[in-house]
């Protein structure tokens, strides 16, 4: 692609030749190599089924890549298993399209589940989380704009926007080195989508957490991301700042006129 992102001196995450084939010979990701700065919002845009979601899920190994390396602060996540993988996952927060809260648990339990990588099963069973975790969870409920009164509401009683706020709080609870967000606004109405993006950008700024967001709303990506990566057919076809993203690029990413939703 003509616009290239400037080289990043100390990337938090580096992908090297990342490849995923669900069926042999039919790659969904075609040897992706990318570096991510340890701050700011990066948006990945592209049509549905283009491998955006697979890319995000490969990073924390919810999907196993077929080939390639995933370097999180120098540690290669593609090569680890079991306990080591769980340790690595603790440092990567994730926000989902369908929020994926445990519906029958309270808001507080969902937020605290961000600490599950650190507590024993016995404590998890009794819900005896360390006091400082509970403190931080209450603060986070304020920070994501829900307020502490929500702590004992059940997740299935919340609206979509409220659920996504809990999802974000759960991810931040991990004190992650990196936050992944897989279409966090696709199930929300336009107004709530803006609020959620606003919140994530703010969190990234104030807490210094780099965020990688899959999103197919180009306007939102332009508004909140410092860097946009355009993907189509398993390839990266654009990588640069939002100002550099032009009609021609979008036509290329979304194929002709189809990008205008």
């Amino acid at each position: 692609m003509n616009v290239m992102h400037p080289a990043i001196a100390e990337p938090v995450l580096s992908l090297r030749g990342l490849r995923k084939e669900y069926r042999p010979g039919q790659p969904v990701l075609k040897d992706i190599s990318l570096d991510f700065a340890p701050h700011g919002v990066t948006a990945i845009i592209g049509p549905s089924g283009t491998g955006k979601s697979t890319l995000i899920r490969c990073i924390n190994r919810l999907v196993d890549p077929t080939a390639g390396d995933i370097l999180l602060k120098g540690e290669n996540l593609a090569r680890i298993q079991g306990a080591a993988l769980r340790m690595a996952r603790r440092r990567i927060g994730m926000v989902f399209q369908e929020y994926n809260l445990v519906e029958r648990l309270s808001v507080m339990e969902n937020v605290l589940s961000g600490r599950l990588g650190y507590v024993s099963p016995w404590r998890a069973f009794l819900r005896k989380f360390p006091t400082e975790d509970v403190e931080r969870a209450f603060d986070l409920l304020d920070a994501v704009g829900l307020g502490q009164d929500f702590a004992n509401r059940r997740a299935d009683k919340l609206s979509g926007g409220q659920r996504q706020r809990v999802g974000i709080a759960r991810a931040i609870m991990q004190e992650p080195a990196l936050l992944l967000a897989d279409e966090p606004t696709s199930s929300l109405d336009p107004k709530t989508s803006v609020e959620i993006m606003e919140l994530m950008a703010e969190i990234s700024g104030t807490r210094g957490i780099p965020i990688i967001i899959n999103i197919h709303n180009v306007d939102l990506a332009r508004r909140y991301a410092a860097r946009i990566i355009g993907m189509t057919g398993g390839d990266v076809v654009f990588d640069g700042p939002p100002e550099a993203l032009e009609r021609g690029h979008l036509a290329m990413i979304y194929g002709g006129e189809g990008w205008q939703e």
Binding site: M108, E109, R127, T131, V134, E135, R136, F138, D139, Q148
Partner: peptide
Amino acid sequence: MTGTATPTRRWERF
């Protein structure tokens, strides 16, 4: 995280 001055808030599941 900035330290909060609020007294220790307790949370219990039930």
